[in-house]
Design a binder for these strands. Structure first.
Lengths: 205, 205
DNA sequence: AAACTTCCCAACAGTCTTGACTGTTTGTTC
DNA sequence: GAACAAACAGTCAAGACTGTTGGGAAGTTT
């Protein structure tokens, strides 16, 4: 009766689920234990996956981590686009855009990405995987920010101001990892929004 | 003269030299191999110190790293003050201050500090040592920046602008660790110098 | 000079991590 | 429905790292 069993779980689906569970667990471990604390045994335990199954899907730790990097960059892009869709328009638009960016750069996915950046600095294999993907995410974020702010990138200085804004929120995100101070962050963004708005307006009359 | 007097080195001096060598080697390892790659054996090899001697001065790895954190914070403060003394005055002062800060936040000492920050996030013992010292360095840096810019911190928004500037260079420093782009950094600082100068002038008439 | 402290050295035990290995179950194909 | 391939499970060995132990050398004090 082989022809009357169409609803069994196909291989492809099982593989997909298994890999997704492992990658999700990897990101969680990165956030909770850091890169050095993310051992393969810990990941498999957390994912509820046997060690053998893990080694089957990801033969080495590098393979697992590189796949996690790709997974994470996709998640980051998705989250950004989703958050951008819920932004208000009008007077406080700029401040809202900054708030969205700051939220992203203080979220767990950013923390995980930070662990990977720092680890990649001294790990050539990891750097090869992280660098191009990070560049892609960075470009996408820049493009999105320009669009959300309605800035004219052809005007001189505008491109640099947007980059400065992104580097600022990156710095805020870094500071947040060891000393969480949301009030301080909020005041800084208030001030930055005013300055940025004025500068952009002045550069695109 | 006595029969055996090849080189009488007092204890105090020996320990001082030994500890300094070990701390210096620790920072170097942090920069080259990252925190996870900084093993105690590697440090002792690099310092040209036997493992036994290392264990004598720093019984545990934590003790070594904590001492390195303190050492590093002192070095950072010294470097900042020294660089500040060589700044020009006049028209391009603000840009020069930003350049000095950016240089500091892309230097090896910053790289080492970054490794410690990230590691401290998931290591309570290390966090206890890093957090207060980082706060001290941060405050000192802020104070110095306000002074160098000649800003009036009592004026509303000025404090936030200085903090934003420091977070910006921190973000630039983070970006620099994986993709070194000095030209991009320079253009951003050019633009921000103009905006910051205008904003500060406007807020302190 | 002798007792005493500090400093230094080398070998070792215990723990953790990675990836290799053997065996079992499940799905696919002929 | 039988052969085959993929997915899954659990154990094992090699290597690395940390911190301990016991002994010996150099410096200090009385």
């Amino acid at each position: 009766m082989s022809s009357t069993a169409p609803a069994r779980v196909p291989q492809e689906e099982r593989t997909r689920v298994m890999r997704a569970r492992l990658l999700e667990a990897t990101v969680e471990c990165l956030v909770e234990r850091g890169f050095a604390g993310t051992s393969t045994t810990l990941v498999s335990q957390r994912a509820g996956v046997s060690r053998g199954a893990q080694l089957h899907h990801f033969p080495t730790k590098d393979a697992l981590v590189v796949a996690a990097v790709e997974h994470l960059s996709e998640v980051r892009c998705r989250e950004l686009v989703a958050a951008a869709a819920a932004l208000p328009t009008g007077e406080r638009r700029t401040r809202a855009v900054l708030g969205m960016l700051a939220d992203h750069f203080t979220s767990p996915v950013f923390t995980a990405a930070l662990e990977l950046w720092v680890a990649a600095r001294t790990d050539p294999g990891l750097l090869g995987a992280v660098a191009p993907l990070e560049q892609r995410v960075g470009r996408e974020t820049h493009r999105l920010t320009v669009e959300l702010l309605g800035a004219d990138e052809l005007a001189p200085g505008v491109r640099e101001l947007v980059q400065a804004t992104l580097d600022l929120v990156r710095g805020l995100g870094l500071a947040d990892t060891i000393t969480d101070d949301a009030r301080r962050r909020s005041r800084i963004l208030d001030e930055w929004a005013g300055v940025l708005d004025a500068a952009l307006k002045e550069r695109a009359p």
